[in-house]
Write a protein that binds this DNA or RNA. Sequence first.
DNA 1: AGTAATAGTTTCCATAACGATACTTAATTC
DNA 2: GAATTAAGTATCGTTATGGAAACTATTACT
Lengths: 141, 141
Amino acid sequence: METITENQKLKAARKLKKMFGHIDLKTATYCPIRDVMALASDKWSILIILYLGYFPVLRFNKLKKYVYGISNKVLSERLKMLESDGYLSRTMYPEVPIRVEYQLTDFGYSYLTKLLELTEWATSHGDTVIKNRRKFKANGT
Amino acid sequence: METITENQKLKAARKLKKMFGHIDLKTATYCPIRDVMALASDKWSILIILYLGYFPVLRFNKLKKYVYGISNKVLSERLKMLESDGYLSRTMYPEVPIRVEYQLTDFGYSYLTKLLELTEWATSHGDTVIKNRRKFKANGT
DNA sequence: AGTAATAGTTTCCATAACGATACTTAATTC
DNA sequence: GAATTAAGTATCGTTATGGAAACTATTACT
């Protein structure tokens, strides 16, 4: 049942006002949603962060297995960016063969807790989306 | 202060277990995160949904002004997809010139409430990300 | 007949993103 | 000296994405 109360709408409005209220809509000042979220809500980044939440420590090749379909190039790019932004830490052990461990920082965990709200919603509402999509297609003029 | 308690980590782990526990990591079955989120966590979609939360009703050109930088093509694409997936409704008034109104559905609102968790976090932690990024760059080998 | 306004669509082009594959480094084992 | 292993990097070619600008439909007004 997808019932949204007026109260929930008001709460959302209040949050939005806080976010948007002080932004001049005409001039393009720095926008964290465009910047921060662009990386952190990227499809691959989300999966990386979730798996690092699930498995506290992961190495490159393991991560690549879990985040199936990702290429070396993209995985290493994303890892570097996520490290750069502070979500995860990279620890290198100069053994042979080399061992490198990735794990979420506290900052990363902080993000994860919010991200989970969204991915939980997505997993539990995925079927609704599929249903909606089908219905829309069927009604297609 | 970015302190994450063990309790919070445990809570996250529990949620993740629910999400990932039953998924066979080897075979690529349907994954709502890859599918649902791919659209709904897209940079433009996020902005569209947020503005439709802020302004309950918006028309094409207004939306285009708020979501500055978006092109006609992409805006109309995203609107169609978001409508198709059930996040927003499109109402056409056959006046001249034509009038079309977009607004969030209850389903869209339901998503918005979760999305806000994330965007709020992003707005309040944007400066940390910038700081981290700078530090990382400075330490660059 | 020309203009105006809204909500797009269409077309074409540029760039960015991605994927596959080969390669690198370094110490150890065979 | 060849093979092995981890963690990438490098390169190249393809695909996807996005932007700019022109165009369409519709009716009223001048």
